[in-house]
Design a protein around this nucleic acid. Structure first.
Lengths: 147, 147
DNA sequence: GCTTGTTAGTTACAAAAACAACTATTACAG
DNA sequence: CTGTAATAGTTGTTTTTGTAACTAACAAGC
């Protein structure tokens, strides 16, 4: 029937690699701070970009507003971020990390950087470069609809 | 504080690429056959390897036994696979696709192949090759524990 | 002003995944 | 044999996620 091999199917392979590489990092933010995936993502975006609104984060991180809403709620409960209602548009609010949140961010980027180093240590600089480039291409790629 | 950029953090980038590339394919197996991720995976492994036990699939696909159990249940309900109790060890059963299941498999690998083609169409052959190689490396990499 | 439409974000409910405890069977030590 | 441990797989319960419906605020046309 086929010479098809699932393990070479790109979405499958990507998912496996993502899961394998994300597992240990998940352990860290989960155990240390009781955070969920969406939460560390929101935290990282805020940490890297300063104050943002929920929808800005959503657009940047490709996250649905409900996910963000809940993540923000939890981060706020834990005093990792503060919400400041926008005076010019009171529907939205500016989110920014508290000092505590910044400390968490600082801690986690340390871990993340060590992570990346370990992950890339098996790759040549050229491989790492091509990997990055191709992944970015795949991210921005919009697929045709197979209806 | 940092020149750290989440978008370049490998687990994050991998996950984004995996999600972006998997979305459209998910649409297909979901709409056409009402299947879940674990289900198409199990189906694909069976389609590619012939009869296997649940634990063999689990080992191969890095899936937890409970996930597989439920996926097998559903595939069996839909008559896409049959379970045959192993005579020598009655704890386990050999799973294999029915003709109907093979038809679904045949259909989906078509889609998968088109998919891969589209995904890789933006990459040079060399990029595609490096991408594959590096992803495999990342999959088999075991990370040190950051306890 | 007042309707209609849009955007920001929340909440409620349904679907799916993760985790733990369980049954049935086999393996093996004594 | 018999008791203990290990393996295959299932079931039950809790978390997380996904989806849809909702409220509040703004925007624009009339």
């Amino acid at each position: 029937m086929s010479q098809f091999n699932v393990n070479e199917f790109m979405p499958y392979l990507l998912y496996q690699a993502a899961e394998a590489s994300g597992l240990e990092f998940q352990e860290v933010y989960k155990r240390r701070y009781g955070m969920l995936r969406t939460e560390w993502r929101v935290l990282f975006h805020l940490g890297g970009n300063g104050a943002m609104t929920a929808s800005q984060i959503g657009a940047l991180a490709n996250l649905h507003k409900t996910k963000i809403s809940r993540a923000v709620q939890k981060l706020s409960d834990r005093r990792f971020l503060i919400r400041r209602r926008d005076t010019s548009d009171r529907r939205s609010e500016q989110l920014s990390l508290t000092p505590a949140g910044q400390a968490v961010y600082a801690d986690l980027i340390q871990v993340a950087q060590s992570y990346d180093q370990v992950l890339l240590s098996d790759l040549t600089p050229h491989e790492a470069q091509v990997l990055r480039r191709t992944l970015h291409k795949l991210c921005s790629k919009d697929m045709p609809r197979f209806t």
